[in-house]
Write a protein that binds this DNA or RNA. Structure first.
Lengths: 122, 122
DNA sequence: AAATCATATGAACATTTGTTCATATGAATA
DNA sequence: TATTCATATGAACAAATGTTCATATGATTT
């Protein structure tokens, strides 16, 4: 097997297993999909947001309730709810001055549970 | 229902739905678990690491192979593999000078797939 | 219409994070 | 034993992120 570097700019390595790399390359999803996937998990990757999701998994709640529950400022909860909203993980409905948030779909709980399973089995 | 603030330091809100908050509070997992869960998802929340996991889902690979595949430096791949190792998402075996990495368990693929399902259904 | 209340948001700040560069480690080989 | 090569790692730096503070918005109530 030849030691070809393929003229890559960034990589300072020699290709060791050319066939493996070639094969895996054909199996990789589009960069855009992997980017989106990382962005999705990034949303789960914060304690405050995890707590919010966990709370909403139990019951619909307004912003103030969540702030009290987590003992955090209304502002920071509101900022985080915006992130969750953009990721389509939560939805909301307005009732007068109060805005109620809830989980958007069932995937949230599923992803959540898989994470817990992984942690429990380590 | 009374407007009690419960003497929270940080929250600038009035409790609106006291019963809801009380109930949800009893259902919340321990802070430590939620912290660990967030830490786990944080690991998935980076494009480079997602790509590495995706590649390893297809085949065991050495560090150089991954660097070539992703067109990144060996150093940055190695740093990220350390993160994945600490999260128990990948394992490795040494064969002479070469270190081969692979997925540690099947949860990785499952979490991965759930993420993709969520993205596809939005 | 003015005041009140729940929520949203922009800017600033501190912290965290990912990559790079230089170098260390540790195993095979000459 | 000296060299080579694959990998690991520490420090530095830039970029991203979460919270806070001040204030805006928008709906209700007086």
């Amino acid at each position: 097997m030849e030691d070809i570097n393929y003229g890559m700019d960034r990589c300072d390595c020699t290709v060791i297993h050319e066939e493996t790399v070639k094969h895996v390359r054909t199996k990789m999803p589009a960069d855009e999909n992997l980017y989106d996937l990382a962005e999705l998990f990034k949303v789960f990757g914060d304690t405050t947001r995890i707590k919010i999701l966990c709370a909403l998994a139990e019951s619909e709640m307004c912003v103030c309730d969540i702030a009290v529950l987590l003992n955090m400022t209304q502002s920071s909860i509101s900022h985080q709810l915006r992130v969750l909203k953009q990721a389509r993980l939560v939805r909301y409905r307005r009732e007068g001055k109060v805005v109620y948030y809830s989980l958007d779909d069932d995937h949230v709980k599923q992803i959540f549970n898989l994470g817990l399973i992984h942690l429990n089995e380590m």
